[in-house]
Amino acid sequence: MADRAELWIFLLFAIPLVIAAAGVVAARNPVNAAMSLVAAFFFLAGIYVLLVAHLVAFLQILVYAGAIMVVFLFVIMLLQLHDQDMQDAKLKAMQWGGIIGASGVLTVVALAIQQAGEIHWKAVPESFGTVKAVGMLLFTQYLLPFEATSLLLLVAIVGAVVVAKQRI
């Protein structure tokens, strides 16, 4: 029983995650899609904890489910959507082609994963995925990308204000 615990916990997070992801795609109303996406981010954070990525799981909830989704909901509220904006028109042939193409991609990738055989885990140290260990990595080996990220975020802030503001 104990050795099955991980499988059960995985399924406990994975099944609602897939349902929430399907809800994002299928929802008629953008607000419902946004709420499904928040749920998907929370369940994904649970999967990250299973993968011993504690810092990334924490960031996932803080940045994705917190900051990014608040921005999404704010924009949906600001735009005062009308009822005709909510409903998707009937799918065109091109869109059906896209859906079939996407399921083809899924089939190919799933077959590739199956062909790879069982991929086993390597042992990890006690400090794996902790704030300290990932922080050490970010501030030594990945220092330049880290600083570039701060610059990117600054540019994004200025760019968002310039694009969205009517008169500067």
Partner: peptide
Amino acid sequence: VLFCFGLVGVVS
């Protein structure tokens, strides 16, 4: 599976 759900949403 997640990636393909996203892909379906983007194209449809």
